[in-house]
C-alpha cells in the first residue's frame, strides 16, 4: 500500500474509533458510573445522526427539514434530541430494576428504527438522506484529516467533562448508587433523580456521537447503522477497556475497533461467495471475545480507579 492511501486509511480508522469512543463514554456514564443498562445505543445514535442531518442539509422536497443550519447547530440539536428521548425512557424506568431499563431501551431502539424506516416525510425512509456536509466548507480543514481533528476535539471535550463529573460530588453519588443502593437512599439521596440525570447525560453524549457520524459519512439510511452490531460493539469496547474508567472507554474503542477492522481484513481474503458467512464469523469472534473478557478479566484492561479522597481542609 502506498503512503497516501495508508494515511487515508489511518485517518478513517481513527475517526471511526473516535466516534465510537464518544459512544463508549456515553455508555460509561450510564453503565460504568451508575450501573444502568442500555441496549438501545443504536437508537440514540440514530436520533442524533438524523437530527443533525435534517438540521444541516440543504432544503429537499423529499423529506422534512433541510434547514441548512451550521454544523454546530446540528450537533447541539443532535445532543438535545437524544437527551429528550433518554429523558422519556429514563423517567419510565428510573424507579425499576435495571433489567426493565434494558428491555425498555431495546424497545425504544426498535421503535426508532421502525419510525425512521417508515416515516418517509421526515427521514426519506429507506432512500436515506444524502449530502450531509463536513464543517469548515471551503477552508483547508474541509478534508478527512480536518474532520479527524474535529472528532478528536470532541473526544477530548467529552473526556474532560466526564472526568470532572466523575470526580465531583455528583459522580460520587452515582458510584454510591451503583455499589449500594439502599445505603445511598438512606443517606438521603434521591436514587431515581440521580439515575435519570446520568441516563440523560449518557443519551445526550450518544446523540453527539450520532451527529459526528452523520457529518463524517455524509449519507444516512436505516440500514447504514447495523443497529445491533453497533450497540454490541460499543458494549464490548467499554467492557474490554474497563467500565467506569473514561480512559478505558477510549482505549477500548480504539482496541476493539482495531480488532473489528482486522477481522474484516482477514475475512476479505476469503472468496466472495462466503461474504455473508464471513460477516457472521466476525460477529461470532467479537461475541466470544466478550465472553472471555467477562469470565477472565471483568474489570477490563484499565480497571476503574476512583479518585483519591481529599483530606478535608482544616
Amino acid at each position: 500500500m502506498e503512503f497516501a492511501s495508508l494515511f487515508a486509511y489511518l485517518v478513517s480508522f481513527l475517526t471511526f474509533a473516535g466516534i465510537y469512543a464518544v459512544l463508549a463514554m456515553g455508555l460509561n456514564t450510564q453503565w460504568g458510573f451508575t450501573g444502568q443498562f442500555n441496549i438501545g445505543i443504536a437508537g440514540f445514535f440514530a436520533v442524533g445522526a438524523y437530527t443533525s442531518a435534517i438540521l444541516t442539509t440543504p432544503e429537499s422536497p423529499a423529506y422534512l427539514g433541510g434547514l441548512g443550519m451550521p454544523f454546530l447547530v446540528g450537533l447541539v440539536g443532535a445532543t438535545l434530541a437524544s437527551a429528550l428521548i433518554g429523558l422519556v425512557i429514563g423517567r419510565i424506568t428510573a424507579k425499576l430494576r435495571t433489567d426493565y431499563l434494558a428491555i425498555a431501551t431495546i424497545g425504544i431502539a426498535e421503535m426508532i428504527r421502525l419510525f425512521i424506516k417508515n416515516e418517509d416525510w421526515l427521514t426519506n425512509g429507506v432512500r436515506g438522506i444524502a449530502g450531509i456536509e463536513r464543517p469548515f466548507a471551503g477552508t483547508p480543514l474541509d478534508s478527512p484529516f480536518g474532520y479527524l481533528l474535529v472528532v478528536v476535539a470532541f473526544v477530548v471535550l467529552v473526556y474532560f467533562l466526564l472526568e470532572r463529573a466523575y470526580a465531583s460530588p455528583w459522580g460520587r453519588v452515582l458510584r454510591a448508587i451503583r455499589e449500594n443502593e439502599p445505603a445511598t437512599a438512606a443517606a438521603g439521596k434521591s436514587i431515581a433523580r440521580f439515575r435519570l440525570q446520568a441516563f440523560v447525560l449518557g443519551a445526550a453524549i450518544m446523540g453527539l456521537g450520532g451527529g459526528l457520524y452523520a457529518h463524517f459519512f455524509g449519507f444516512l439510511s436505516p440500514e447504514a447503522f447495523m443497529p445491533l452490531y453497533g450497540t454490541f460493539l460499543v458494549w464490548v469496547m467499554l467492557i474490554a477497556g474497563g467500565s467506569g474508567n473514561n480512559r478505558g472507554a477510549i482505549l477500548g474503542a480504539v482496541v476493539v475497533w482495531g480488532v473489528w477492522t482486522l477481522t474484516e481484513l482477514a475475512t476479505d481474503l476469503l472468496p466472495t461467495e462466503y461474504a455473508t458467512q464471513a460477516a457472521a464469523l466476525r460477529v461470532l469472534l467479537i461475541g466470544v471475545l466478550l465472553q472471555v473478557i467477562l469470565v477472565t478479566r471483568p474489570q477490563g484492561i484499565l480497571p476503574e480507579k476512583p479518585p483519591k479522597l481529599i483530606a478535608r481542609k482544616k
Binding site: F232, A279, A280, L281, R282, L284, G287, Q291, L294, P298
Partner: peptide, 29 residues
C-alpha cells in the same frame, strides 16, 4: 459468572444472542 452481579449475566446473554445468531448463519445460511 453467576457469582458476580446478575446484571453481568445480562451482558453475557446479550453476547450469547449474537454468538448463537452468527452460528446459525454460519451453519444454515
Amino acid at each position: 459468572i453467576r457469582r458476580t452481579q446478575p446484571v453481568i449475566l445480562l451482558i453475557s446473554s446479550f453476547g450469547m444472542a449474537l454468538i448463537l445468531r452468527s452460528l446459525i448463519q454460519l451453519i444454515w445460511g
